[in-house]
Design a protein around this nucleic acid. Structure first.
Lengths: 204, 204
DNA sequence: CGTATGCTCAAACGATCGTTTGAATCGTAC
DNA sequence: GTACGATTCAAACGATCGTTTGAGCATACG
């Protein structure tokens, strides 16, 4: 295992990979600590419990991701009425960049798993800590799509969110063409997602 | 518990509800059999193992659902070029009808959980047994959207599938207005989903 | 009546789970 | 060098997991 990382970070990395592969219940602390090359008791020493470890896996990635999203949204505020595509880019591009660095793609799968949980403390945790980001984007969408009723808008946002989460959780499998650069491929993917989301949000 | 149902069906019903709520690993056979009002050993007697029970939960619902979908698609074949909206209706309406009968809405949540699993025997099982339905609809979409490249089409279908699965897994929570009938509300929802999917598939 | 057959039951199996413990080891500051 | 907090370690804890067992009970058939 990577000896340059702290025990804490090795656990977080292994947890991310195993949660993505086997789920939160399916991944045991014994598999997890073995993969990380640390002692079994290290999880409870550094995180307190398995549940706290799960929360920390999300916190580590989502703090940065949501900060990036809000920063991108804030940058749009300067030029007064941003377009729908620009707002969507502020939401989508940071997630796509995350999914191309390190274990980022695995984290998107973990996020998709959390999406499928319709109750439990995890959903509450995510809503409590990161709901404000979704609320801010929703407000922006409402300003850009004033002809939609509130229920209709929420419906569409829910559908778009489901589509994006599902798609991004599969990024590990997408092969880019040999003749396009990593950068170009990513930008191309962003444009695909943005156009899809814009069509779903703003169709008559 | 409902004494008119067989032990087998009581188990399947309780399994569906508990898998939706706690996941496949999270729901134990002891919780499950207690909820069903049957003996613990009944699961292994009637199904062989927990994994086989999971498969049977899917088989029971998906056999009927996919038969309905293919039948609806077949009925379209009569009038020669069906519209995109008609093909989408053939895919969406049977699922929505299922989600309004009995525990159908819970099953859609179970399906969404299975979607989040990126490996494991469950995904293989679903692909083996029900992949042909998705392939048939994909062929129909390809005929209706000939201007899209194959990768582009697959992308869009993947996004639409993610959106629909996510949306339908939340149907338990949607309240219909007092002044619209059950039937009208369902038809309204179908139209929302169809229009969203059509926009996402066919946008320029 | 006797006896198969299908099903249910309480009880137990070994395995694995998350967590706790107390000693061993490390790195630093005095 | 010694004392001390932080960390790691092997070992064990009780609980719960999926599965198996063998006896018990019912219904149907000869």
């Amino acid at each position: 295992m990577n000896a340059t990382l702290s025990t804490r970070d090795r656990i977080l990395g292994a947890a991310e990979a195993l949660f993505a592969q086997r789920g939160f219940d399916g991944a045991s602390l014994r598999q997890l600590t073995a993969a990380a090359g640390v002692n079994l008791a290290a999880v409870n020493y550094h995180f307190g419990s398995k549940e706290k470890l799960v929360e920390e896996v999300f916190r580590r990635r989502l703090d940065a991701l949501n900060a990036d999203r809000l920063a991108a949204l804030g940058r749009l505020g300067d030029k007064h009425p941003p377009t729908l595509e620009e707002v969507l880019a502020a939401y989508i591009r940071p997630a796509l960049e995350l999914s191309h660095e390190g274990n980022g793609a695995l984290f998107m799968r973990v996020l998709a798993r959390a999406f499928a949980e319709h109750d439990g403390t995890l959903r509450q945790f995510l809503s409590d800590n990161y709901g404000h980001v979704m609320r801010q984007f929703t407000a922006e969408f409402a300003r850009l799509l004033p002809h939609l009723s509130k229920p209709e808008l929420y419906w569409r946002i829910d559908l778009v969110t489901g589509a994006l989460t599902h798609a991004m959780s599969g990024f590990g499998m997408i092969q880019r063409q040999e003749d396009v650069s990593e950068q170009a491929h990513r930008e191309q993917t962003v444009q695909h997602l943005i156009r899809f989301a814009a069509a779903g949000l703003s169709h008559p």
